[in-house]
């Protein structure tokens, strides 16, 4: 029991207690600046009718799909490239470098680089004859742009997690495959990917949860706009809680977000049978 005692302490004090409190507040009318008033299910009833809420959910899902899809493929690709091609620490350091820069700064740098009038990226596009793209201002581009920025920051991080997983695959497995005359491509699908499963599941669950909570990039760049194109759920919750002082309603939405994440993660874990490892 001593093994989990410290973790449990931190868990109860800094996670369980605040969550229970948040859950309670979701049944209240609470402006942050005056005492909470119990109002039953009123917040949840409002949520059902709140078109902003549904829009925010939709936008968030769009973001998660793009972000996770692109990021996972790239990360596994990079990890494989690093694993098969080079043991160079410099390459690894470079790949991780974007993660060293804080979210907010990453967003600011790209905001500047992707500016439609003075951004360097649109200058490059101009050189190859492409008209400037209003990355943040065009409602069709805004979410993919935000997702792309976060892929840039996180792909090295994710690749490193996958890479750590690759390192735990024993060499003899590959040697056996080579003896059988398996091609590199086949080896990847038949051996590497299945053996990578425990790590991959973890990476997917963790990045998915993080992805649903996208906030910083939106707060720095589009602030929910244009119109409501990037008003992702967490940004909307934040707006409700801290600029509109509707903390009770924000708590209710946060709790729903929590429930959605729990279901999605559970499904992922079930579907991918993360519990057992193929090696154990």
């Amino acid at each position: 029991m001593i093994f989990i005692a410290p973790a449990t302490l931190g868990f109860v004090v800094f996670y369980i207690w605040p969550t229970l409190r948040g859950a309670y507040l979701s049944f209240t009318e609470y402006s942050l600046l005056s005492a909470p008033k119990f109002n039953g299910l009123a917040n949840y009833e409002r949520m059902v009718q709140d078109s902003f809420f549904w829009n925010a959910l939709g936008v968030t899902v769009e973001y998660v799909v793009i972000n996770i899809g692109v990021q996972t493929v790239l990360a596994v690709g990079i990890a494989m490239l690093m694993y098969r091609l080079t043991k160079s620490i410099t390459v690894r350091a470079v790949i991780l470098a974007p993660y060293l820069v804080a979210n907010v700064v990453v967003a600011l740098v790209w905001y500047w680089m992707l500016d439609v009038q003075v951004g360097i990226v649109n200058t490059f596009l101009g050189w190859v004859g492409i008209d400037p793209v209003a990355f943040f201002g065009d409602s069709h581009w805004a979410i993919p742009t935000v997702a792309g920025i976060n892929v840039w920051r996180h792909m090295g991080y994710t690749a490193l997690l996958v890479f750590a997983g690759l390192q735990t695959i024993p060499k003899y497995v590959y040697e056996a495959a080579e003896v059988d005359g398996s091609t590199e491509w086949k080896t990847f699908w038949r051996i590497t990917l299945p053996l990578l499963r425990p790590v991959l599941v973890m990476v997917l669950v963790v990045t998915m949860i993080g992805s649903f909570q996208i906030f910083d990039t939106v707060a720095v760049t589009t602030q929910g706009g244009p119109i409501n194109a990037t008003r992702v759920i967490y940004y909307y919750i934040y707006e409700r809680a801290f600029t509109r002082f509707d903390f009770g309603y924000a708590s209710a939405m946060a709790l729903v977000l929590f429930a959605i994440l729990a279901v999605v993660s559970l499904l992922q874990l079930r579907l991918l049978r993360a519990k057992e490892s193929d090696l154990a």
């Binding site: 500016d115 003075v118 400037p132 209003a134 201002g137 065009d138 589009t222």
Partner: peptide, 18 residues
Amino acid sequence: PTYAQAKSGVDVTTSFGA
């Protein structure tokens, strides 16, 4: 500029300065 262009910039002063 169109709204998309106006909002896809760092800020209005930077564009003015450019």
